[in-house]
């Protein structure tokens, strides 16, 4: 006889919600919504709502499958140790079934209720996040979030495709913008959470290559990110509202990134500039996409 494994009571429904990473979902939903609102054609409110719901459910499914696969890493990181799986509030099979079911439902519903192009991109984004980022890259290379960042860059493309049934230059630039924004954003976080990542054996850039390299890379990635952020304006894809907002907001981002890039830390450093860059990078993305919608509607 094998020793009996303790039976867990059924997980609380709030734990299933926590499995979907609701805070990450906020950014995904917002960029997806902005991609849809920036499209040149109107979309029926019910169809638009359904598309955004499917994006949110797809992101939730990807988050759940990520937590299912990474529960061993999450258990040793302070930031993630209280998640439902490492905390022992849910069994792994329930999380797997929930993630697969939610992902399949989001894609099928998007295909039936919205259109097949949006459903196809949603499928790619979920598979990319789960298979390419979580399973393949995250534990193997310090470039994990550079390539894996593409997964988080799909929502504006999906939102646009939901409205138009097609893909154009502007949503591709928005995809590139989020893709290039991801490394400085995550590396700023990795700089002040370095010990957590090292304890979990995740090869984030500061753990593998050191702080100096990470700081230089933050500075270097900010250059193409800034160019892509501003590019829609000179290309005539947006008006001056977005253009001026992009120049000012990106300028401030660049200043914070340069400050982080040039710094050398000492023992017991509070890492204030790194935390400031991380916090601002989230606000920056929200305001940039907000400015895009305002520009497309009012300019």
């Amino acid at each position: 006889m094998t020793p009996a494994t303790p039976l867990l009571p059924p997980a609380h429904w709030r734990d299933f919600l926590a499995l979907t990473k609701p805070r990450v979902m906020t950014l995904v939903v917002f960029t997806g919504l902005c991609g849809m609102l920036a499209a040149p054609v109107g979309v029926h409110p019910v169809i638009g709502f359904t598309a955004i719901l499917c994006i949110a459910l797809g992101a939730g499914a990807a988050g759940a499958l990520n937590q299912w696969y990474e529960s061993d890493i999450d258990a040793v990181m302070r930031r993630t140790a209280k998640r439902p799986l490492p905390d022992g509030r849910m069994d792994r099979q329930a999380a797997l079934h929930f993630g697969v079911g939610l992902g399949a439902f989001s894609v099928l519903f998007m295909g039936v209720a919205v259109n097949l192009v949006a459903a196809a991109i949603l499928t790619v984004s979920i598979l990319f996040y789960v298979l390419v980022y979580t399973v393949w890259l995250k534990r193997r290379t310090p470039q994990n979030i550079v390539i894996g960042g593409a997964a988080g860059a799909f929502p504006p493309l999906i939102g646009w495709a939901a409205a138009t049934g097609d893909v154009a230059l502007l949503p591709v630039l928005l995809f590139l913008f989020v893709f290039l924004w991801t490394p400085p954003h995550f590396w700023a976080l990795a700089l002040f959470m370095k010990s957590d990542y090292a304890a979990a054996g995740v090869p984030m850039l500061p753990v593998v290559s050191g702080e100096r390299t990470t700081r230089t890379q933050i500075g270097l990635y900010t250059i193409p990110m800034a160019a892509v952020a501003i590019l829609p304006w000179p290309l005539g894809l947006t008006g001056p509202i977005y253009g001026i907002a992009a120049v000012l907001l990106t300028g401030w981002f660049a200043l914070l990134a340069v400050r982080v890039a040039k710094r050398t830390t000492h023992a017991d450093d509070a890492m204030k500039p790194e935390k400031a860059l991380f916090k601002y990078s989230i606000l920056y993305l929200f305001v940039m996409f907000g400015a895009l919608v305002v520009d497309r509607w009012f300019a």
């Binding site: 009571p9 059924p10 429904w13 029926h44 019910v46 169809i47 359904t50 209720a113």
Partner: peptide, 26 residues
């Protein structure tokens, strides 16, 4: 726990039916 999950599931299914109806009309 079972009661709480059943309630949430009932709410979600109800919302899904309403959404399907609204999508069909649209």
């Amino acid at each position: 726990r079972q009661r709480g999950r059943a309630r949430v599931m009932a709410l979600l299914l109800g919302a899904f039916v309403i959404l399907i109806f609204a999508v069909s009309i649209a």
